[in-house]
Amino acid sequence: MNKIKMICLDIDGTLLNSEHKISKKTKEVIEIVANQKQIPVILVSARMPKGILFLQKELNIEQPIICYSGALVMDKDANILSNCSIEVSEVRQVHNFVKEIGVHMSLYKDDEWYIEEIDEWSSQESAITNIAPNVINFTDLFNVWEQEKSGPNKLLCMAEPNKIKALDLLIKSYHSNNLNIYPSKPTYLEIMPSNVSKTSAIEILMSKFNIQRSEIIAIGDNYNDISMIEFAGVGVAMGNAPEGVKRYADYITSTNDEDGVAMAIKKYIIS
């Protein structure tokens, strides 16, 4: 097996435990690989930049970040390496479905989070991420984006599981080829441009660092992590991952509450 030269690490359900914290043991192991062994530790998430950068600071690492599951890639100096967005016409259609079913919808563009009104879902997300959203009329925002010929990097829909399932089916019946749609948990439906993935973003950084896929370890816990788990030289699924994710992994580590990231890094790099 080739020597590992890059670690690609999902955040929620992987790096963070169920209390949304990084354990002491995981911090210690990442400190060793990032600062002693000089191996880039890349945080790869569906989160916005603000939701990733404070975790980098906590880990004492300075590296590029992959946001919105690959739709936005930034280097360590916040220069944009890649930026993909969803067309406003698609966003309007999803917004219509959301209103019809009664689902919360958040829009993310660059490093901003937009909602139409504060509700239990936005309050919950704000508490998890420590980020405050911008409250704005979506119709006005759509008009601005149409004039700018731009759009959001990500849509996040939140509701009870039965509504999320209904919305997922409805959107896929209209937009199966244009959007990348997946439930990140029973109450969350995440929507990104169809031409991006965590793997497509990792490939950008492979060129930057001159690293081969066989030299990468990727660790994740959810369906949007499958592509990078399958792609990497060593693909690791967390113990708390669904069976549908675990089947793609080379190794299944402990859960996010049992220092699974630290265990995998020790196994493949430190030992």
Rank of each mutant, 00 (worst) to 15 (best):
E90A: 11
E116P: 05
A166D: 14
Y182I: 07
S18K: 00
K154Q: 09
V91S: 01
F54Q: 13
G233P: 05
V44K: 00
E203D: 04
M74D: 00
K27V: 10
K163Y: 10
L9T: 09
D10I: 07
D259T: 10
N83K: 00
V234I: 13
G13W: 01
W145S: 14
H104F: 04
M6R: 03
S194D: 09
L189V: 09
I86R: 03
E120N: 07
N130S: 13
P152M: 01
N60M: 08
S150V: 11
I219A: 07
Q38Y: 12
S214Q: 12
A159P: 14
Y188D: 01
N17V: 11
R213W: 13
V196T: 09
E116V: 01
T187N: 11
L55Y: 15
V44F: 03
W121M: 10
I65T: 14
E58K: 10
V73Q: 01
N222S: 15
H175Q: 13
R92T: 12
E62Y: 12
I86C: 05
N60G: 13
N96E: 02
P193G: 15
L170K: 10
N256E: 05
V234L: 07
I131F: 15
G70W: 00
S69H: 13
K27E: 12
A46H: 04
S254Y: 11
I115Y: 07
D140N: 10
I226N: 06
I80G: 05
L107C: 05
Y188C: 05
V196H: 02
I171Y: 01
P133E: 03
Q124E: 14
W145R: 13
K3P: 10
S23D: 09
V91C: 13
S18C: 00
L16D: 07
E125G: 03
T14M: 04
V33C: 06
P161L: 08
V41L: 02
I202S: 04
R92P: 14
E160L: 06
I61A: 06
I66V: 14
D250N: 15
T253K: 06
Y182V: 09
E28T: 11
Q212E: 14
S194R: 10
K267E: 15
A262L: 14
P161S: 05
D225M: 05
I118L: 12
K5N: 04
I216D: 06
I181G: 00
K76Q: 10
Y174D: 12
E117K: 13
V41Q: 02
V135C: 15
N210W: 05
L169F: 09
M192V: 12
A241H: 11
G70R: 01
I66E: 03
R247V: 11
P133G: 06
I7N: 00
L16C: 09
S23M: 08
V234S: 03
I80N: 04
N96Q: 01
A71G: 10
T129K: 05
